[in-house]
């Protein structure tokens, strides 16, 4: 990004890229911060003006890219409603944390029409604030004492065809959960609200 503020047009495609990139980094941050994978599996990277950690694990990388590419498709088709990162105990299968990214899309924006104006830098600042909040979440979230694993759930509209290799799932709610709403960001095309629910 240049030094001067760039008032750029944001199309559905561009917004989709920003949002799915944000998902990638925030999922990585959650996995690192919550200790789902050991710290040595992560390598540092500079993004959004922050030092972030992304996984080096090939299997995980492949998995995330597979999911996120499908998520991008759904973002483009405006079918996606939510992305949920479920953190569950390996032993008991109990769901301990649920990171919910609510996605709202501007219905006016078409594939090549209705671009919105927003400075990418402003968006990055908003995202930066969310990533910071994810990092800070370790201070109030209960310690995950048992080995945990994660799963990604995608809420799509009812008329979405279930693609090959995907299957329907139950929502994996947490009974008696506490909720903390984090900041949100908007590209003016997509608005993403973040919320973490955890077992009280």
């Amino acid at each position: 990004m240049q030094a001067q503020a760039t008032k750029s047009n944001i199309t559905l495609k561009g917004s989709t890229e920003i949002v799915s990139e944000f998902f990638g980094y925030s999922i990585n941050s959650i996995l690192y911060q919550r200790g789902i994978y050991p710290p040595e599996d992560f390598s540092p990277i500079s993004k959004y003006g922050l030092q972030m950690l992304v996984t080096k694990d090939e299997g995980l990388k492949k998995y995330l890219s597979q999911v996120l590419s499908k998520v991008s498709d759904w973002l483009m088709q405006k079918l996606i409603q939510k992305l949920v990162v479920v953190v569950a105990s390996v032993g008991t299968g109990e769901v301990l944390e649920r990171w919910v990214f609510d996605i709202e899309v501007d219905k006016d924006v078409g594939a090549d029409s209705g671009a919105k104006e927003k400075d990418v830098k402003v968006i990055h600042n908003e995202i930066q604030a969310i990533i910071r909040q994810i990092t800070a979440s370790v201070t109030y979230l209960p310690l995950l004492e048992e080995p945990c694993t994660f799963d990604l759930l995608v809420y799509t509209s009812r008329d979405t065809q279930v693609p090959v290799a995907w299957e329907e799932s139950d929502p994996k709610f947490i009974i008696n959960s506490e909720e903390v709403r984090l900041r949100s960001f908007t590209t003016k095309v997509h608005k993403v609200d973040t919320l973490v629910a955890y077992k009280a």
Binding site: Y63, D151, E168
Partner: peptide
């Protein structure tokens, strides 16, 4: 809404975890 879960390769093997709970 439909809730979808990418299952072809259900959550990759983290060294200390293997997904046992999920569908």
């Amino acid at each position: 809404s439909r809730i979808l879960n990418f299952s072809d390769f259900s959550s990759p093997n983290s060294p200390k975890s293997k997904l046992t709970s999920c569908s």
